[in-house]
Amino acid sequence: MADRYSFSLTTFSPTGKLVQIEYALNAVNQGVTALGIKATNGIVLATEKKSSSPLIDASSSSKISLITPNIGMVYSGMGPDYRVLVDKARKVTHTNYKRIYNEYPPTRILVQDVARVMQEATQSGGVRPYGVSLLIAGWDDGIEPETKAGEDAEPEAEKLAVKSGKTGGILKGGPSLYQVDPSGSYFPWKATAIGKSATSAKTFLEKRYTEGLELEDAIHIALLTLKETIEGEMNGETVEIGIVGPPEDKLLGYEGVEGAVGPRFRVLSSQEVEDYLTNL
């Protein structure tokens, strides 16, 4: 009789839950752990790259993706669903923003756009929710959080900030780290983890995280956290790290253009990861 009332996969259960979303979260909680830590001058995203066979060519697969030059993303859960979301995130970046304003969206706006895509899968017919949680890390231009009035390099902008009396946006720049769940809800974090060992990883991060962390420290902590949870060997092939750091003008591919700023987000090479691991 119960199945008589199962009109669709996106119907409330009598207890007020959407069980499909819970199942999607279960998929996430079976996924490989991924984590993110926000530092004062950047953000680190890290995850384990598990391969089922030694024959897999690990160097040509990647779980951390660039969405805009200043925003990167990692996941825990179902790989194929993630790929679809990366495609959609990159697309909305342009259709909803760059092609309108000729600039890339701030992190929060992108997070909201991706969250909408995921929410719609919980309310539409004929679809299932995405079986992934995301960590989205990005850097926004504007006044960085620790800048105080009349103290730093941007007194002009600070005065304007007081004048307009607005919060966030252009006036609130710097790093941000968000988690997006299959339900479409999202949370801003200083540091967090998703996936199989999320709980223990978060406990570890709670102990290790301090205010005023620098990016290099954050990468160190990220690797220590990963070490606690990782199942296999830790090396440049099995650990993937993405960072949002200072602009890398080298990555522009050209030089001599005034005002051109390089991307802040990049995925570290296996050699770079290896170097960090040896210093652990």
């Binding site: 309108i100 304003y101 000729n102 600039e103 701030p106 706006i109 909201q112 307009s164 607005k166 919060t167 966030g168 946006g169 252009i170 006036l171």
Partner: peptide, 13 residues
Amino acid sequence: REERAISPQTLAN
């Protein structure tokens, strides 16, 4: 949406 005033450059685009 953005909780900020639009800048002249952004308005131009």
